[in-house]
Design a protein around this nucleic acid. Structure first.
Lengths: 308, 308
DNA sequence: AAAGACTATTGCATTAGAGCACTAATCAGC
DNA sequence: GCTGATTAGTGCTCTAATGCAATAGTCTTT
């Protein structure tokens, strides 16, 4: 079952009642039509067209073959047309993945509007904290927050924003204990952490001092969760000291529900970025979501700081 | 909508989960698969497969495209399989054409048996006296009786038998008139002819004498018909002199219902032959009919002489 | 943890197919 | 009845796709 194009050529010749006519109509050289149909007949071992030097007509076999050809060619035509449709406007399903935290805090406020705006685009959002395999799990787009922007081969990383992380606690709690004046003092405080920070049952925080010195402290957390809202609430309730993204705590700091701890010490800032496979042949549906996120996510990060 | 083969390549890659696997399974070089699928994607402007150097997975678009591909490839496969079936054994419809005379006299006795023998072969027999166009009317096989075997380009002419034609009349009629002793005397006799012999309201008979001399006589016919049985009956009834094929009159001569006129003079013998388009790619169905006729028609011509 | 095995892809020489001009043969019209 | 136009098919040159060998990268196994 070799050359599939011959079916098209044959169908064209039949449709236009002759090689020359088909050549004129399709733009394919008639010599090619002639040769390919001849080759097809030889492969089949069946005469499809009965030809004299001037006229030609279908064989009985040719007629049957032509019927199947039409079906095949039509299927192919539909396949092409369908792809053209996908390329014309944003339609279809986009698969996206990000950490649960980000889905809840950053995407939730803006995604509904995207779906309203692009009514033909469906979205599958896999909110999971595990490392996803972009290719095997057929993910079109990943939103990530990491210290280093990963630059895998064939993947595009598009930075969206920086996420400074601040050590915070409730003023009440700070008044209760001796507020730490240098990193090592943290080990005596109650702390709140996230699973990704865990190492050997303890949380490790890297802090950069005012003179660029780096101190790594290990603290035993009283609460470990990947739910940032929960951490925020626990901190506000005075459970302990938490290391949280600037965007998350901004509101609480402003209203004095939280206060910064060791404000002169900073942690490595996280980069929030989009990760997606090569843009070559990217569909408008994916493109539209990326564009939408590039515009609205930075704004979302600033405005939608979490209320108490 | 260019290269149709790419659909096959793509379908193969999807089916076998990878370029290398598809290459092993189909025998197509993996480099070709890789390049053709890449070209297909570029033409579509859509990524079908998301690949890393080692693994690969379908895109959403790719999955949809694959569905259509399967339909197209399947149609093509069926088309090929169908032709293979036709080639395997005699099946399908064979179109044949011949003069009404021959259908009635020569084919009628033997065709039913052919249809019994080859139960999967259907036959369309166009019994017409007009000149058929083998190609335009999609005729697979023609049985003809002509003075000269035509040797058209691209057509095969297969001689079956000679048909001498004899001048005959009923003994009763011959007794009534002066039996002609030389061709020119025929113009005073009553004659029976066929439309093909007509020229300018008269019938022209070419007669070859015992010393190879040729005489062309024109006679005014009393009856003109292409129904040989009718001519035979008219001759037996004593309407006049007829020029009929040897096979047709053999029985009547034997039983003295007819007698030969001018027995020393002969007419140009007719050649009975099969005419069919080039045997290249000929189907078993047609082949079987030709073979059957080559065996049984000559016998039919001898045995089945028409009974009074 | 490192190496081996396997993946998709690319460079380059070669072959197979494409296109042009032309031929043989047929049909239409004067 | 012959000429002109049109048909399918063919020879030859050249382009473009193919196949081989090698590359870069990834996953698995020892």
């Amino acid at each position: 079952m070799d050359d599939f194009n011959d079916l098209i050529y044959f169908a064209a010749v039949v449709e236009h009642h002759g090689f020359s006519a088909a050549a004129r109509a399709t733009g394919i050289e008639k010599t090619r039509l002639s040769r390919r149909v001849a080759a097809l007949e030889q492969r089949l071992g069946v005469r499809l067209l009965q030809r004299s030097t001037r006229s030609l007509a279908l064989t009985d076999a040719g007629e049957r073959f032509h019927l199947h050809c039409l079906a095949a060619v039509e299927s192919a035509r539909v396949a092409y047309a369908h792809m053209a449709d996908l390329r014309r406007e944003p339609v279809g399903t986009v698969r996206m993945s990000c950490a649960q935290v980000m889905a809840q805090n950053y995407l939730a406020p803006i995604l509904p509007n995207f779906l309203t705006q692009y009514s033909k685009v469906n979205l599958i959002l896999d909110a999971t904290d595990r490392e996803v395999n972009l290719i095997e799990e057929r993910i079109d787009l990943v939103l990530r927050s990491r210290i280093e922007i990963e630059n895998s081969a064939g993947l595009v990383a598009r930075p969206l924003a920086e996420a400074r992380r601040l050590l915070v606690a409730s003023p009440t709690y700070l008044r209760k204990i001796n507020p730490p004046s240098e990193p090592r003092a943290l080990s005596k405080c109650d702390t709140l952490g996230r699973p990704v920070e865990m190492f050997d049952g303890q949380i490790r925080w890297e802090l950069n001092g005012p003179e660029a010195e780096t101190v790594s402290v290990q603290v035993s957390p009283r609460l470990v969760t990947n739910d940032l809202r929960l951490l925020l609430k626990a901190a506000i309730h005075g459970v302990g000291i938490a290391l949280l993204p600037e965007q998350i705590v901004a509101n609480a700091l402003k209203t004095d529900l939280l206060a910064q701890v060791l404000p002169n010490w900073t942690t490595t800032t996280h980069h929030i970025y989009l990760l997606y496979p090569s843009p070559r042949g990217m569909l408008p549906s994916v493109r539209s979501l990326i564009d939408y996120l590039l515009i609205h996510l930075p704004i979302s990060l600033q405005k939608h700081s979490i209320k108490n």
